[in-house]
Design a protein around this nucleic acid. Structure first.
Ligand SMILES: [Mn+2]
Ligand SMILES: [Mn+2]
Ligand SMILES: [Zn+2]
Ligand SMILES: [Zn+2]
Lengths: 132, 132
DNA sequence: AAGTAGTTTAGAACGGTTTTAAAGTAAAAA
DNA sequence: TTTTTACTTTAAAACCGTTCTAAACTACTT
């Protein structure tokens, strides 16, 4: 399935801007990135896009499940092209994230979900500090 | 141990402002809160404090381990008086956090820590959505 | 081709957080 | 005690990531 089809499939109009973003993000290589990272990459690919459009696009892609946003308390939002269920190492000094595949971790026991709610995804973050 | 001692013990001068904050936060009842929540509570206790001091104070308390900051991608920083090793339910709609005590959850298998790094704490977030 | 609903954009606005620099206070030194 | 020093508080401005505004533009439908 090509990117135009992916967008259509997700219910998004394949505009010029969304295709530029899809070409960068949906190429099979996973990455963690900020809105600014993405805009820089768009610029260095010879294209350009307003920061509002970058954010609009990321919000749409996220709502369609084409990308995810990582749960971290950094000041800048971190997005993730890996939409599989997975977890992260977080280097708190640098902010760097490393994927932990689902099979690499196992939650043996989880608490009862509060009345009236459903489990909507578990995120495990293993914080790292440099060894000496 | 009284709050003045707690502050001294943590290497912090027990200033008037830090004592006001300690009286609110270190009373044995745990809570999740923002800087603004805390300032509101200071105001309604008949005191007042600049927002810069609230943030300075929270940063110091956090660095001393008197409070923690929760790992969530909300736009506003969430602090936690529960400094025990524990986890959270997160209602993504409202931002509400509920503690999960360490005994309520068990990680059966965790991945190998990358070369040169140490495990500096694991945070599990169970995201909740309302059931129908 | 014409209509319309959705999209992009520059720039302004917003909101949480940090910085600045001057005044104030706590602890240490004399 | 007084003096000195280092640390703290503060109002206000700055900062910075993100969202909003409203006008121009574009993709899709008829
Ligand atoms: Mn923040
Ligand atoms: Mn944010
Ligand atoms: Zn990831
Ligand atoms: Zn908690």
């Amino acid at each position: 399935m090509n990117n135009k089809e992916k967008l259509r499939n997700a219910g998004l109009r394949p505009t010029k801007q969304r295709m530029i973003v899809a070409d960068i993000l949906l190429n099979g290589f996973n990455r963690h990135f900020t809105a600014e990272n993405l805009q820089d990459e768009i610029n260095s690919s010879g294209n350009s896009m307003s920061i509002a459009t970058v954010y609009n696009c990321l919000k749409k892609f996220k709502n369609c499940g084409l990308i995810k946003q990582v749960e971290t308390s950094k000041d800048t939002a971190i997005f993730d092209t890996n939409t599989d269920y997975h977890h992260h190492f977080l280097n708190e000094e640098t902010g760097e994230l490393i994927d932990i595949e689902n099979e690499e971790i196992s939650l043996h026991k989880i608490p009862e979900i509060p009345q009236g709610y459903l489990n909507n995804g578990i995120e495990v973050i293993i914080k790292l500090k440099r060894h000496n």
